[in-house]
Computed example of a mutant assay.
Amino acid sequence: MAKKEYTYEDIISDIKAKQYKPIYYLMGEEPYYIDLISDYLTQNVLTDTEKEFNLTVVYGADTDIATIINAAKRYPMMSEYQVVVVKEAQSVRNIEELSYYLQKPLSSTILVICHKHGVLDRRKKLAAEIEKVGFLFESKKLKDTMLPGFITSYLKRKGLDIEQKSSEMIADFVGSDLSRLTGELEKLIITLPLGQKRITPELIEKNIGISKDYNNFELKNALIEKDIFKANQIIKYFAENPKTNPIQATLSLLFNFYSNLMLAYYAPEKSEQGIAQQLGLKTPWQAKDYIKAMHKYNGVKVMQIIGEIRNYDAKSKGVGNTNMNDGELLRELVYKILH
């Protein structure tokens, strides 16, 4: 039977209920949730007075496994718990030896291991011991298609609403670094006029610097609609503003879209729900663009487009390209997509 995959919400819910575990092993390629859980534990388990004697924070490069185990074996002073946090745990040598401590861990110690940009081998003894007594949590990178949903959910928790176009614009501009993404969202929240609860494209254009009319989101829509005039207007704007519209970001978005469009053809059910399930989209409404594009492009054309995007990505990096600038490359690529 497969082990349960714990979510961030699962863990925070337990902590709020004061159902603490002897170990929280937080690992994965996405640092955002690792930091969120670690910070929540350090801020909420102990009072400020208790932290003076019962909060220990060490860094993997400056410690060893023996020191970590000895710290975990200490009893708290004038507190029910002590919290031991190991940051950059991927640098700790012989971390497998932690499995011996976990066979009989102290219930008064909350050991938080932050292992970023990698994962523990789940087949090894340490993983098994962690899962017996604590949480083994993997923080995975979000797919680009999931970012607008993340933005919407984040703002909803703050009591705010956002238009679909706005969430797409931010996701495209900022990318999948969730720490940077939430930072940009917090900046937007601060700039909201008093009483306004909705983030609009105009607000984003004013405070983040993304044009509400000339951006990758609008270029994608123009290509879906096969609107040649609008697509060329956007490309002209990109060519005139290369610093805020790098070709690599545009090529990445187009590649992801047309790759997903190719997968959409293989969905058993061609409804919004069926395509959302096939592509792993968070909500069915995100499938609307793919359904629309399937009526404009056939599978053979989509395969050709994917090949062309790869080709122009190589050219943008100097492979087989002697004299064309980014604007010219993008104009030529868009022509081939539309014709």
Rank of each mutant, 00 (worst) to 15 (best):
A2M: 14
A2I: 09
A2T: 13
K3I: 03
K4R: 14
K4N: 07
K4C: 03
K4V: 12
E5Q: 15
E5L: 04
E5K: 14
E5P: 00
Y6T: 03
Y6R: 02
Y6E: 08
Y6K: 04
T7V: 02
Y8M: 11
Y8N: 06
Y8I: 09
Y8T: 11
Y8W: 08
Y8C: 04
E9P: 00
E9R: 06
E9N: 07
E9S: 08
D10Y: 02
I11G: 01
I12F: 09
I12E: 04
I12H: 04
S13G: 02
S13E: 12
S13A: 15
S13Q: 12
D14L: 15
D14W: 04
D14H: 05
D14V: 03
D14R: 06
I15T: 08
I15H: 10
I15A: 05
I15V: 15
K16P: 03
K16G: 04
K16C: 04
A17G: 07
A17M: 12
A17N: 14
K18D: 13
K18E: 13
K18L: 09
K18C: 08
K18Y: 10
K18T: 12
K18V: 05
Q19R: 15
Y20M: 11
Y20P: 11
Y20Q: 10
Y20F: 15
Y20T: 10
K21F: 12
K21M: 14
K21I: 03
K21E: 13
K21H: 13
P22H: 12
P22N: 11
P22E: 12
P22G: 13
P22M: 12
I23K: 07
I23L: 12
Y24D: 09
Y24C: 10
Y25A: 00
L26E: 05
L26V: 07
L26S: 04
L26T: 07
L26Q: 05
L26M: 06
M27S: 05
G28V: 12
G28M: 13
E29T: 10
E29D: 14
E29H: 05
E29N: 11
P31F: 05
P31H: 06
P31C: 06
Y32L: 04
Y32F: 15
Y33H: 06
Y33S: 02
I34L: 07
I34G: 00
I34N: 00
I34S: 00
